[in-house]
Design a protein around this nucleic acid. Structure first.
Lengths: 203, 203
DNA sequence: GTCTATATGGCGATAGAC
DNA sequence: GTCTATCGCCATATAGAC
């Protein structure tokens, strides 16, 4: 029935919202039922247990956490453009899903074994990007650096602006939501500038 | 009595360990009692409630999360040396407390009001560092940039190496703990290099 | 498929003996 | 100060009517 599918989708959507907000341990099945506007028993009818419902949500979120960068990386633009494009797309993703980083990082640290299962589903090929970077190093067009560290640095700079929101807001921005939004809107440019400056080969 | 103090300290130590590992919601009073090698009722005898015990642990952790940088920033060394010294000390702190970032970030996001209470205890003066940076910009010795973004970038780069450990290990380092430790040991130098390159004023 | 009612277990907290 | 035993509640999960 269409109604069946609609309900299942409604549950997944509600679960996504509540799990991301409160985390697995802090979330109650009742919270999800309320958010979905249905009864608690229906959750178990569709997903059998809290764990299974969580898995469905988590796998989706985890996939999203790693943006589709294959097209960017495979394309024929300069490394600078690739990095700029990556930061641009990743920040957009985080703006739309501000709780995603803290959600993923938290669950993955509380339950590190889980990630090992998921990795099999998730075919990520960092070598495409790494190859791009190494080539530029050999060209001499950027300075010698470890591509893995560069990527981790970029992701860290993007993520912390969101995972650290309450801290940033309080200590740096007078606890003003408005100033925080402004800060986030500047962030793309600031990160891109920082990264591009940092990889230049001028001594 | 000395015994009293010893027990209280034992509880705090155990609570710190377990809360950081599992988070407030995922942690059970029984877990802490086990870790401390005492009875569950004793926890309530000393700290009355889970909330109060958590507050004691959290305040301590939060204070630690912001390293004492006053001396560094107030000293008479170059900005480059200041940043290098900050990264050095902060990374050392995180190496000793690898779960600290995910713990703080998680709790602060789940309960953003809490930070507003704590901020009153915590006198942080970012202006000391910011002033240092702004002066160098006016000197023309570093490029024009927003000091706030620079700091958030540095902290993000440091933190993500730890908060993202399971992900980094799995996707970048063949799930090898040994390689991860190596990666962390290189990280100080990589971040410092990246930061110092990024702020230079050469076009 | 969706609901109400309930079983079952676990957790925070307290009472009370020693 | 430290323990055992227990209360009272709340969360997951199921039974069963509609």
């Amino acid at each position: 029935m269409e109604l069946k599918i609609e309900t299942e989708e409604k549950i997944l959507q509600a679960a996504k919202t509540v799990f991301q907000q409160k985390g697995f341990d802090g979330c109650r099945m009742q919270d999800i039922a309320d958010e979905a506007g249905i009864n608690k028993a229906l959750l178990h009818y569709y997903f059998r247990s809290k764990d299974r419902l969580f898995d469905a949500v988590f796998k989706d979120a985890f996939r999203k956490f790693f943006p589709k960068v294959q097209e960017i990386m495979a394309s024929d633009i300069t490394l600078e453009k690739k990095l700029e494009s990556f930061i641009d797309k990743y920040m957009d993703l985080l703006i739309d899903n501000p709780m995603l980083p803290i959600f993923i990082l938290n669950e993955v640290n509380r339950n590190p074994e889980k990630i090992t299962e998921i990795i099999n589903l998730q075919v990520i090929n960092p070598n495409l990007l790494f190859g791009s970077i190494i080539k530029e190093i050999e060209n001499g067009s950027i300075r010698k650096l470890d591509p893995r560290h560069l990527i981790i640095s970029i992701i860290g700079m993007c993520i912390f602006a969101f995972a650290g929101k309450p801290i940033i807001k309080n200590f740096l921005l007078n606890n003003s939501e408005e100033e925080y939004l402004l800060f986030i809107s500047q962030r793309k440019k600031e990160i891109t500038e920082l990264v591009l400056k940092s990889i230049t080969n001028i001594k």
